[in-house]
Structure formats: structure tokens, C-alpha cells
């Protein structure tokens, strides 16, 4: 049994008396990639804001490495839907931001960052500004920044949803490769069923209005995976199962 990294216990949240999340419990084990799959507007981002400590839950708590971190920001890496790369900082300085916030001096931060550029497939972009990069490269840089904040647990909120289909395919392969190297424990929001099956070890299906965990599906396919997994009968079987549950 792998070590539990993150436990989200019985989270509920209302806005103006309207329940958005109802009794949500999620566990995340060391090195796992777990997806939250559900329709847009189902409260997934609200859940992430609660886990990240930006929003207090009405009920429930968030445990990281056995410690209660409910309502405490700054513990978990959070990558939001937009890449949010700051347009006035170069890519290396964007990536270095979490280190600078922790008080690392600029030179040391840049050194640490530069060691990871190759691993993230970002060579040669250090001195460029975000506006000079393609959408796919910007997401890579945003993921690098997320990783530099904490190598413990990361929350990724639909990181690839804004990309076109072809870019998405190549970034999925890139993502599987990078994750194989860095073994980041990740909770991943998506509304793309194929993406969830391709990338995840487990999938939680979230039903909307109010958001509840409807089912949990384990994807048995061993890792490392290739993106041609999505062309196999097993893949389709998972997809059929998920569609029947949604």
C-alpha cells in the first residue's frame, strides 16, 4: 500500500445558500495521478480553491502528509486554468517566482530553475517572454513553475483545455514522459474523458448540482503509457463505463 499524501474529507460548501459541493472525499497516494472528471460548472474549481486553502469549506478538512492544512494557503502547488504567466517577466523568472516568494535570492533561484528547463522540454526559452511562446509551451512553463513551488502535491485545473486537439495530443505525451521522471503526486481536473483515461491512475467522477463524487474508477493500464493507449479496446471499455455513469 502506497503512502497517503493528501486526504480530502467530507468537504461541503454552499454559496448564498445554494450547495455547490456535497460531502466530497478524495484520497491521493504518493506518486499517483488522480483525475476529477465532471461537467464544467460542477464546482470542481471551488473544490480546488478549498484544497489550496484559498477558500474555507463549510464542512470537512484537508490533510496533507497527516497534517491538517484546511484554510492554509501556500502548502500545495496549484496550477489554474489560465497559464497566468506574468507577461512582464521572462520565462525563467516566471518559473522562478515560487522560489523568490520563499525568499531564495534571484541568482540561486535562476540556477535551480535552469536545471529543469531541459527536463520540461523548454530549452532556449529562458530569456523569452510569455507572449513569444505558443500555448503548449506556455503550459509547460506554467507546469514547471507549479512543480518548483512544491514537489509534494500539485493541483492542476484543466491545464490543457485551452489547447487545440493536435497540440493537446503532443502535450499529453510530453506530460506522461515528464511525470515519469518527476513523479509528482497530482490531482487533475478535466472535462475531457479521453484525457482523464489516458493520464490517470484513478478517476473520480463528479456529478454536478451539487457536486458529489458519483463513482471512482481505477485505470489498470501500467505506466509508462504511450498515447496510443487511447486506440486500444481497453481504453474504449473504460470510456464506455464512464459514459454510462455520467
Amino acid at each position: 500500500m502506497r503512502m497517503k499524501k493528501l486526504e480530502v474529507n467530507h468537504i461541503s460548501k454552499c454559496f448564498d445558500g445554494k450547495p455547490i459541493l456535497q460531502d466530497i472525499s478524495i484520497t491521493l497516494n504518493q506518486g499517483e495521478l488522480v483525475s476529477l472528471l465532471g461537467v464544467s460548472g460542477g464546482g470542481k474549481t471551488t473544490l480546488f480553491n478549498i484544497i489550496a486553502g484559498l477558500l474555507p469549506p463549510d464542512e470537512g478538512n484537508v490533510i496533507l502528509n497527516g497534517k491538517d492544512i484546511t484554510n492554509q494557503p501556500g502548502q500545495i502547488s496549484y496550477m489554474m486554468q489560465k497559464d497566468l504567466l506574468l507577461p512582464y517577466r521572462t520565462i525563467e523568472d516566471n518559473a522562478a517566482l515560487p522560489l523568490l516568494l520563499k525568499g531564495v535570492n534571484k541568482r540561486d533561484a535562476r540556477t535551480q530553475v535552469s536545471l529543469l528547463f531541459a527536463q520540461f522540454g523548454l530549452e532556449g526559452t529562458q530569456k523569452k517572454y510569455p507572449a513569444q511562446l505558443s500555448g503548449g509551451m506556455r503550459q509547460r512553463a506554467a507546469l514547471l513553475r507549479t512543480y518548483l513551488f512544491s514537489q509534494d502535491v500539485a493541483l492542476l485545473d484543466e491545464p490543457f483545455s485551452a489547447l487545440d486537439t493536435l497540440t493537446k495530443r503532443s502535450i499529453h505525451q510530453w506530460y506522461l514522459d515528464v511525470m515519469e521522471k518527476i513523479q509528482l503526486t497530482t490531482l487533475f481536473i478535466t472535462h475531457d474523458i479521453d484525457e482523464a483515461i489516458l493520464l490517470s491512475d484513478r478517476i473520480y467522477l463528479l456529478s454536478g448540482n451539487p457536486g458529489r463524487i458519483a463513482a471512482e474508477i481505477v485505470i489498470q493500464e501500467p505506466k509508462p503509457r504511450r498515447d496510443d493507449f487511447s486506440l486500444t479496446p481497453e481504453f474504449l471499455e473504460y470510456k464506455r463505463k464512464i459514459l454510462s455513469l455520467l
Binding site: P73, M80, L84, L97, L101, K102, F149
Partner: peptide, 14 residues
């Protein structure tokens, strides 16, 4: 200033 960017920094404990 971009509210999301501020939220991102807050999530990093800024």
C-alpha cells in the same frame, strides 16, 4: 491587476 494571478500568488503563500 489580474485577480487570478493574485489568487495564484496567494496559493503560493505570498
Amino acid at each position: 491587476a489580474d485577480r487570478d494571478a493574485i489568487a495564484l500568488l496567494r496559493s503560493m503563500g505570498a
